[in-house]
Design a protein around this nucleic acid. Sequence first.
DNA 1: CCAGTCCAGTTCTATTTTAGAACCAGACGG
DNA 2: CCGTCTGGTTCTAAAATAGAACTGGACTGG
Lengths: 149, 149
Amino acid sequence: MVKRVSLGDAACPVARSLDGIGDWWSLLIVRDAFDGVSRFGEFQKSLGISKGILASRLHGLVALGVLAMTPAADGSAWQDYVLTPKGEALFPVIVALRQWGEAFCYRPGEPHSALVERSGGKPLAPLVVRSAGGKALRARDTVVRKLSC
Amino acid sequence: MVKRVSLGDAACPVARSLDGIGDWWSLLIVRDAFDGVSRFGEFQKSLGISKGILASRLHGLVALGVLAMTPAADGSAWQDYVLTPKGEALFPVIVALRQWGEAFCYRPGEPHSALVERSGGKPLAPLVVRSAGGKALRARDTVVRKLSC
DNA sequence: CCAGTCCAGTTCTATTTTAGAACCAGACGG
DNA sequence: CCGTCTGGTTCTAAAATAGAACTGGACTGG
């Protein structure tokens, strides 16, 4: 491989995001964190991931500022991994992936988990990309402008 | 590795999405496709990816139904890779990653590309997760319900 | 306070995936 | 036809991964 290509200095925000969280496990760890998982052993059981990879991913996400290690929570002397504001901001990413998976990755009638409103249990509205004025936009209504600030 | 863990049969839509498009390159290929890239050589030049990986990723995305191969477009005898409706539906995922990257992966004032409205050039509104009734929701206002249909 | 067990890793090795270069075949252009 | 461009496939070395073994500190029961 010589060296896995680094996108960390790319001008495209999509590339830079994926450089940090675009690997096989990071977004699943973040999804579990949204679900309330916070302990090393819980992540490992939930994901079926090997401990070595989990440790390196957790430390990577902490270094990136997506997760933070906080002492205790239930009083024990161990660590909790909790979402930072930067990690919380990934919520739309997770929801977008979830809605796409629900719509396209299951056969009709095949059971799957669903994200619902906590009070009431009703499903969420589909994510919609909107203009600054609030108008719904399709992909072809948008264009990438290079190198703005 | 024995065998890379397969998430293709997971009950969680996030896991299933990532099983298909969660690798290092697939989402960047899709991003370029949204940007109008359609030829093998264009993808290769834009991404700096090796041809072997690009070929396997393109074929994987075609097998998944995200891209389709269509003959010609400019009349030549080669193939175009274009987004299918399933691929077009990834637009909110790309936008979510882009907005997160813009917000958290650049130093203040550091230049980056931006996705803007085609007519007018104004930036997009931030993606917001909403309830079925249209109310904006934070992560903690939602909960995962297991195994619904 | 001591042995046994659980939690949270680190280290090790075999296997898989990846990157990149070299190679190849079919269009295309003169 | 003959060189060149496009779109790949094949090859090898390097990197990432899974899984098991190992470690060491924290709780638990007696």
